[in-house]
Write a protein that binds this DNA or RNA. Sequence first.
RNA 1: GCGCCUGUAGCUCAGCUGGAUAGAGCAUCGGACUUCUAAUCCGCAGGUCGGGGGUUCGAAUCCCUCCAGGCGCGCCA
Length: 574
Amino acid sequence: MELSSFFLGRGNGLKENLAELVTDAISQAKKVGEISFSYDVKPFFEHPKDKTHGDWATNVAMVLASQANLSPRKVADFIVKHLNDKQHFLSKVEIAGPGFINFYLSDKWFRGVLKEIKEKSEKFGYFDMGYGKKVLIEFVSANPVGPLHVGHGRWAAVGDALANLMTAAGYNVAREFYINDYGNQMRIFGDSVAARYVEFLGEEVAFPEDGYRGEYIKEIAQEIVEKEGDKHFALSSSERSKIFRKIAYRQVLAHIKKVLLTMGVKFDVWFSETPLHDSGAIDEAISELRKQGYVYKENGALWLRTTDFEDDKDRVLVRENGKPTYFAADIAYHKNKLNRDFDKLIDIWGADHHGYVKRVEAAIQALGYPKEKLEIIIGQLVNLWRGGELVRMSKRTGEMVTLEELLQEVGSDAARYFFLMRSTNTALDFDIELAKSQSSDNPVYYVQYAHARICNILKFAEEKSFSLPNIEDVNFNLLCEESELDLMRKLMEFEEVIEVSVRKLIPFRLTKYAEELASLFHVFYTKCRVINDDSACQQADVELSKARLILVDCVRQVLNNVLNLMGISAPKKM
RNA sequence: GCGCCUGUAGCUCAGCUGGAUAGAGCAUCGGACUUCUAAUCCGCAGGUCGGGGGUUCGAAUCCCUCCAGGCGCGCCA
């Protein structure tokens, strides 16, 4: 998924510099007649998989070769000849393989990253690619008729991390939860609780057809009995149902908010569906659609011609009985969001709703908005595993692990990490035993442990009166071990990771980066000692310790920042 | 039947706009603690990228087709 048009920002500074350098060299070569081509190509840069191929590489010579009617290596020769690296951020440029141009960054350049981290601290990695554009991310949006299940946890973790990421990238982000508190299901829900209530008070009652049979319904009813006694007993069944719908809804919603808060997920807006019906917003939306010419009547119902926008079939807006469909309300909801002046709407839905995507996109366009206004992320479902055993879940049998139970068992950090760990278009296998295990198998602890280890070094340094040096007093040229240079390279990548994660809407990329950085730190840790506490140690050792202290403190900072974006704590001690 | 997602090492997954010898983690096996936390590190091994065709200098990546799995195809929400 590419949102290129929306994500025109400054982008990654270093990459841009490099791109400019190469573009300039190409136009120079063209000017002097060495390379001729008629249409421009944008150089593509990547980090070579193999370190010995440099820090960056571009394939531009190979792309130009056929146009220029020259061999790729010849084109590369001409380009390299015209590179004018005024800022001296390259130490070496090589032509390799079929025609890659490999760039090696100068020491000066990637040591500069340490200074930048110290300056920006918790804002390191942040940059302005959004220019304050307003984005609304709608996620979770569970029906308020029961507890959240583990799938909701995934959307909570993904949505919240995405919101954090986009904020870091300079967007103005709001988080919203749409509450489907209207319609049939709410009525059934109220009836179900009412029936259990009457049951508790000792009266035989027929449980509603299609009623919610989960244990939690009984719990809600019992709570009402305990708090309010039998005062609703004497009411007529329709009055009772109405009241219970309200009470039970309040309880469930409060519970949903509480559980999400346990995960550290806070919404800016809780948007209720009911007012859309009561305020005439749905009628307005429909008349707007009619004005645009996409509405027609057939078989007593009112239809939206979504097939004009690639949907399989047209969809009903108003039923034969005069009641608007869920779809109609959803159109009014999206219209409401669009009216609130967001530059971009992002919806995160479970895979079980993917069949709904086309019609909502159609509705947006029928309302006169460009399709790109709305981005719908479809996430695949979550399978729970306990050890090697798949945990079967079924609403019918009531065998359900709720999000609350999962959080209680594995904790918020592990839960969020696991929910985030995979691409959203892959079904997620969530192994409860693994999430709980305090071992190297568990990536959450692996990353957090790196952070805690560094904090311990800093504490140890303090005890040896090796306080964190002033950055001006440090000679970073002393950092020349491979593991040190690898760490600095990885630190430098952070901004780029944020950029890619946002551009492609893939927050799971953060977990990969966190693990890579943690891993490089652990390697460094076993190879390099930071604090030389030998009283007889040389001045040179002291200088090296200073430089390494700054280095590990920078790693600590970036680990902290990436964990923050994921909504996971960065413990000082483990 | 149609639509969306998925198929890469024994397992769970990365792999960007088509690029260099397809990468991690786990599991297995073999090593490393008198040293700032061994919740760590190092090494070995492991692959017809679901099958087949096509596009081209080059395909895990793009196109077609087939196979397998998940999800969805209401005037439910």
